Computed example of a mutant assay.
Amino acid sequence: MNVRAIASIAFVAVTCGVGCSEKTVDGANTAGAGASSGTSGDGGAGLNGAGGAGGLLPSGAGGAGASTSGVGGAPTEISPCQNQIYECGDLIDNDGDGLIDSQDPDCLGPCDNTEGSYYGGIPGQAGPPCIVDCYWDSNSGAGNDACYWSHRCDPNEVAPSYYPEPENGATCAYDPTTIYPGSGMNCAALEQSQSQQCHEVCGPLTPNGCDCFGCCELPAGSGKFIWLGSEGVDGNTVCTADAIDDPTRCHPCKPVPSCLNSCGPCEVCVGKPAPDPGCPPSSGSGGGGGNGTQQCESGVQPCGLAGQDHCPPFHYCITGCCRPVPQ
């Protein structure tokens, strides 16, 4: 799809996004429209900071600029998730916390429709019971990304809680002999290997500190992993930053080593809005960090910290690195 077509879609979606009906799940707004299909996805944690955005903004919002809290200014471009505009890409401070889109630590990319929780809020994002694919793209089918995992492979899926999917009870009970449908691979094989297609499509969209199936280390560096698709048994609670120690809201999960994007000391990660002390902030395309590492891999523009440039059009700041938005 060309840039002009995407821009046209973005304008239409934002116009609808302000007035279309939504439902609320424990403070997280969830769009009523169905998720679109496609071959790409999203991901990424927002950065903690303030500063108004230019362009399409609600009345009273300020212009682009660096914030006073140590991070860069707000994004200035609408970020579509294929042909949808969700809360984390609409240049609106939907939860009223003074942070817009990728600035907001609850925003995990343009395919995230909640600025008030870690829950993604896209219809079908969690997939069918037990079966999960790339959590960060715009749909719940594995056919376009060839990422395969089952929560039946997760040792947390035991009585009485059956985390990370308690709403499905024993349906997803732990069984390490499970064969993922269509892949012919059992749990052990999937832990060791994902397809090249999965790495190419879902890898760049997976935030630092998470695997490609939405299992993220929270708090950062704790060794404790939580599934961001967590829903309460009654369907009315989701995972928020203030509930990460509450397993009934932020369900424990087993990260999948074959597609885990670990959180490096000089990286921005989910739950870690800046590199560790001693890692100087990078600037420019692929700028370096401390300890011989980089905030982003070579050739990828770092973003989100004070003094760093905004991402170019049709890119999104995903845990400190500019990534192309889904098209």
Rank of each mutant, 00 (worst) to 15 (best):
P110A: 10
T76M: 06
D97H: 10
Y86V: 05
S67D: 15
N83R: 12
I122S: 06
G143D: 12
P128T: 01
S117T: 12
N83C: 11
S138Y: 05
Y86C: 08
I78F: 10
T68V: 11
G96I: 06
Q82T: 15
Y119L: 04
D104Q: 07
G143R: 08
G141I: 07
A142S: 15
A74L: 04
I131Q: 11
P80Q: 08
G89R: 14
E87A: 04
A142L: 07
Y86G: 05
G127S: 05
Q84I: 03
P110L: 11
V132H: 04
G141C: 13
A74R: 04
G98P: 00
Q84R: 08
T114L: 02
D133N: 12
G120W: 04
Q103T: 13
A74T: 02
L108M: 13
D106P: 01
L91H: 09
G124D: 02
A66T: 13
I131Y: 12
D106S: 04
G120E: 07
A66S: 15
Q84P: 01
G72A: 15
Y118S: 06
P128H: 00
A142R: 10
S67V: 10
G73A: 12
P80T: 11
V71S: 08
P123R: 15
G73K: 03
N139F: 10
G141R: 09
I85H: 01
G72L: 07
C107W: 15
D106V: 00
Y135E: 11
T68S: 14
E87L: 05
P80M: 14
W136Y: 09
G116M: 12
I100C: 07
D101Q: 11
